Amino acid sequence: MAKTGYHHGDLRATILAAAAEQIATDGVDAVSLRGLARHAGVSHAAPAHHFGDKSGLLTALAIEGFERLAAELAAAGPDFREVAVAYVRFALRSPGHFDVMFRRDLLHADDERLAAARTAAGAALRSGAAEEQPDQAPRRQHATQLAAWSLVHGFAALWREGALENSPLNEAGDPEALARGMIATVRFD
């Protein structure tokens, strides 16, 4: 990660962007508040002022991730297949966020803003699945929504971890095309 220096802009956003970048390239264990402060060219106490500790930083990053994910899922419209592809697209375009969003062990799990952001993103994903089966009983809808989330999250994780590289299952070579084809095989009845 190249040092860019911080010049009287939005330090909070600068630190979050640097953390997302570092997580995407080096993993979450490589992140430290001191390292991010050094990267931004500010005192080592400056990030702590905004985030408190590393868990606070990662919680803020997860909140930002869930908010972005909710917006992308909502923009995809009501068709579950498009919502599913938007989920995969987000995971691949925002790996630094995606890698911490579901890691409760790294976050302040009781943070109300985190809960609200997580709920909004979940509702956007669930609404796409619910559109596919409007007449189903709530219990059946919940099972289908869980299956749909598991499917797209699992696919995104497999792609991100390189498990589909050189796989005969990866005919398209394009994660969105492959996800779209996979989702097209799912029946919601």
Rank of each mutant, 00 (worst) to 15 (best):
H153V: 04
S127C: 08
L11F: 13
A115K: 15
E176A: 11
T4M: 10
Y87N: 06
G52C: 03
S43N: 11
A123P: 01
A109P: 00
D79E: 15
A45T: 14
D53G: 03
G128Y: 04
E161K: 13
A17V: 04
A115V: 08
W149M: 11
K54H: 06
H50Q: 06
V152H: 00
G56N: 06
V42G: 01
R140D: 09
L151V: 06
G35T: 04
G27E: 11
L57S: 00
V186W: 15
A74W: 10
P168G: 11
A120V: 01
L73I: 11
V83R: 12
A17C: 01
V28R: 11
R160E: 02
A62D: 08
Y6N: 01
H7R: 14
H153R: 15
A109W: 03
A75C: 04
G181S: 13
V152S: 01
A91V: 02
R180S: 12
H39L: 10
A143N: 10
G122I: 03
A172N: 08
G122C: 02
G65T: 02
V100G: 07
H49V: 07
L58G: 04
D10V: 05
R187P: 00
R118D: 13
G128L: 04
F102D: 02
N170F: 07
K54G: 00
A37C: 04
H142Q: 14
A123G: 05
S150H: 13
K3C: 05
F80I: 08
Q141D: 03
D135S: 11
A84S: 11
T185E: 15
A137Q: 13
R68D: 11
H7W: 07
A70P: 08
P47Y: 00
M1N: 12
L107G: 04
M1R: 14
D79T: 09
S167Y: 12
A17F: 06
R93C: 04
R104C: 01
F66D: 09
A129F: 07
R89N: 07
A157E: 15
P134M: 10
A74K: 15
D110V: 03
W159Q: 08
